[in-house]
Lab assay of single mutants.
Amino acid sequence: MLSDEDFKAVFGMTRSAFANLPLWKQQNLKKEKGLF
């Protein structure tokens, strides 16, 4: 599990902003970052 700081560094957004994205968009971002 990423820390909040690492999460923001990897995804360029906060966890709450990420959580507001549609599920497909979350999955695409995870795949792009190799976290899926």
Score class of each variant (00 low, 15 high):
Leu21Lys: 00
Leu23Glu: 10
Phe7Trp: 06
Ser3Lys: 06
Glu5Gln: 09
Gly34Ser: 07
Leu23Met: 12
Lys31Gly: 07
Lys8Pro: 04
Lys8Gly: 05
Pro22Glu: 04
Thr14Pro: 06
Trp24Ser: 07
Asn28Cys: 09
Ser3Ala: 07
Lys25Ile: 12
Trp24Phe: 05
Phe18Met: 02
Gln26Pro: 00
Asp4Lys: 02
Lys8Phe: 15
Leu21Trp: 02
Phe36Leu: 13
Asp6Glu: 14
Gly12Leu: 03
Asn28Ile: 15
Ser16Ile: 11
Ala9Val: 12
Leu35Thr: 08
Leu21Ser: 02
Met13Arg: 01
Phe36Lys: 10
Phe36Asn: 11
Met13Cys: 04
Trp24Tyr: 08
Gly12Pro: 00
Met13Tyr: 08
Asp6Lys: 07
Asn20His: 10
Gly12Arg: 03
Ala19Glu: 14
Leu29Met: 08
Lys30Pro: 02
Met1Leu: 13
Glu32His: 07
Ala17Gln: 14
Leu21Asn: 00
Ala17Met: 08
Leu23Val: 10
Ala19Leu: 14
Val10Tyr: 10
Phe7Gly: 00
Glu5His: 10
Ala9Pro: 02
Phe7Met: 02
Phe18Asp: 02
Trp24Met: 04
Gln26His: 01
Phe11Asp: 00
Lys31Pro: 03
Trp24Lys: 04
Arg15Gln: 10
Phe7Gln: 00
Val10Phe: 11
Met1Tyr: 12
Gln26Val: 02
Leu23Ile: 11
Leu35Val: 14
Lys30Gly: 08
Leu2Lys: 05
Ala17Val: 08
Ser3Asp: 10
Gln27Lys: 09
Leu29Lys: 02
Met1Trp: 14
Gln27Tyr: 13
Arg15Asp: 03
Asp6Gln: 12
Gln27Val: 12
Leu21Pro: 01
Asn20Met: 14
Lys25Asn: 06
Phe7Asn: 00
Phe36Ser: 09
Leu35Lys: 06
Lys33Pro: 04
Met1Cys: 15
Phe36Trp: 15
Met13Pro: 00
Met1Pro: 13
Gly34Asp: 09
Lys31Leu: 10
Lys33Asp: 04
Glu32Tyr: 07
Pro22Tyr: 02
Phe7Thr: 01
Leu2Phe: 10
Lys25Gly: 04
Gly34Tyr: 07
Phe18Gly: 00
Phe18Ser: 00
Lys30Val: 15
Asp4Thr: 02
Thr14His: 04
Leu2Trp: 11
Asp4Ala: 05
Met13Val: 06
Leu21Gly: 00
Phe18Lys: 00
Phe18Arg: 00
Phe11Asn: 02
Pro22Met: 02
Gly34Arg: 05
Pro22Val: 01
Ser3Ile: 04
Asp6His: 09
Glu5Met: 09
Leu21His: 00
Ala17Leu: 05
Phe11Gly: 00
Ala17Tyr: 05
Lys31Asp: 08
Val10Asp: 02
Phe11Thr: 03
Lys8Arg: 09
Pro22Leu: 03
Ala19Asn: 14
Leu29Trp: 04
Leu29Asn: 01
Ala17Glu: 15
Leu35Ser: 11
Leu35Pro: 08
Asn20Val: 10
Ala19Val: 06
Gln26Ser: 01
Ser3Phe: 04
Lys8Gln: 12
Gly12Met: 04
Trp24Asp: 09
Trp24Thr: 05
Phe36Met: 13
Leu2Tyr: 08
Asp4Leu: 03
Ala9Ser: 11
Gly12Tyr: 03
Lys25Ala: 11
Ala19Thr: 07
Glu5Pro: 05
Met13Leu: 08
Trp24Cys: 09
Ala17Asn: 05
Lys25Met: 14
Pro22Gly: 01
Lys8His: 13
Asp4Ile: 03
Glu32Asn: 07
Asp4Trp: 04
Glu5Ala: 12
Phe36Tyr: 12
Lys30Trp: 15
Ala19Ile: 09
Leu29Phe: 03
Phe18Glu: 00
Met1Val: 13
Leu23Ala: 10
Met13Ala: 01
Asp4Glu: 10
Glu5Trp: 06
Phe36Val: 13
Leu35Trp: 15
Leu35Gln: 12
Leu29Asp: 01
Gly34Ile: 07
Lys33Ile: 13
Gln27Thr: 12
Leu2His: 05
Arg15Tyr: 08
Ala17Cys: 07
Leu29Ile: 10
Asn20Asp: 13
Leu21Ala: 01
Glu5Gly: 06
Asp6Thr: 07
Phe18Ala: 00
Asn28Pro: 01
Asn20Lys: 15
Pro22Arg: 01
Glu32Met: 07
Asp4Arg: 03
Thr14Trp: 03
Met13Asn: 01
Asp6Tyr: 09
Leu2Pro: 08
Leu23Asn: 06
Lys30Cys: 11
Lys8Glu: 15
Gly12Glu: 04
Phe7Lys: 01
Ala19Tyr: 14
Gly34Lys: 06
Phe18Trp: 05
Met1His: 13
Leu21Tyr: 03
Gln26Ala: 02
Thr14Met: 02
Lys31Glu: 10
Leu23Gln: 10
Gln26Leu: 03
Glu5Ile: 08
Ser16Gly: 09
Lys25Trp: 07
Asp4Phe: 03
Met1Phe: 14
Lys33Thr: 11
Phe36Pro: 07
Ala9Tyr: 07
Lys31Val: 12
Leu23Pro: 13
Lys30Leu: 15
Lys8Cys: 06
Asp4Gly: 03
Gly12Ile: 01
